[in-house]
Amino acid sequence: MNARKVTYREALREAMVEALRGDPRVFLMGEDVGAYGGCFAVSRGMLEEFGPERVRDTPLSESAFVGAGIGAALGGMRPIVEVMTCNFSLLAADQIVNTAATLLHMSGGQFSVPLVIRMATGGGKQLAAQHSHSLEGWYAHVPGIRVLVPATLQDARGMMAGALECPDPVLIFEHQTLYNREGELAEDAGAVAIHGAKIQRPGRDLTIVAYGAGLWKSLAAAEALAAEGIDAEVIDLRVLRPLDDATIVESVARTHRVLIVDEGWRSGGIAAEIGMRIMEQAFYQLDRPVARLCGVEVPIPYAPQLEHAALPQVEGILEIARELIHGHE
């Protein structure tokens, strides 16, 4: 199998280009997706290939263009709507939560909404409190939508096809620090499942549940732990709704210790949900209380040392992992 070097950004672009080439119903719309090439340069070059009808720049009207995505989906198109960051998605939260997520159920099964919404999430680039938050956990609270959190190149490349095939609204959260991440991708990389978590690193002593940028921090921590003789298993959640309880519970049943890494705020976050599911389904398998490392409950600050401290980091994962293995020292 031939592999080549690509970035996460390029993998996302390849997936969209493939989708637009393969299905005339698919189009991309959002702020600066066309002439600018995308705020994070994901759609660069697509305007030239597909033209302004199908790579459609929108004004700063999140509610209207996200809602237009819903309407276009109802009208037989397969829109991909890009919202620059999940912070801005709050301007369209009504359309997402009150319309996209409700329509199928509220209409008694008559109107499904095959809409894909992509947005950047997360901190780590000193963009401060209105460009750095992690709101995927909020959206994962809402029945009726599917929440994807691709962390790997394979998922960045492969989740779009499944998202576009899904008859229901799919939200894709792309962590801002991953766009430049480079790695090897198979020449023939294609569609991947849009359900299920994946064990990215098997281990015996401890389960680390992570997603998005937290996956890479967790894998780095696992390497450091290995040097200390601790064999950590790392699970990439990949999908926050629906959550893959089985993979988590099965892992915990083997390792008996679990740490959840989640960049979102601690209170009421997705880590809390995962922790509770472990309590419900694997309580008697636990040798230690469920642990979590979340974003500190502050608006993400600009100053580098403060931002660093506000987000889960490798050191924090190591500290908790050691404690889960050795107890308090």
């Binding site: 309407g71 276009a72 109802l74 198109m77 359309q95 319309t99």
Partner: peptide, 9 residues
């Protein structure tokens, strides 16, 4: 916005 999208489609 929904109507806008239907018209767009």
């Amino acid at each position: 916005p929904l109507a806008l999208g239907l018209a767009l489609a």
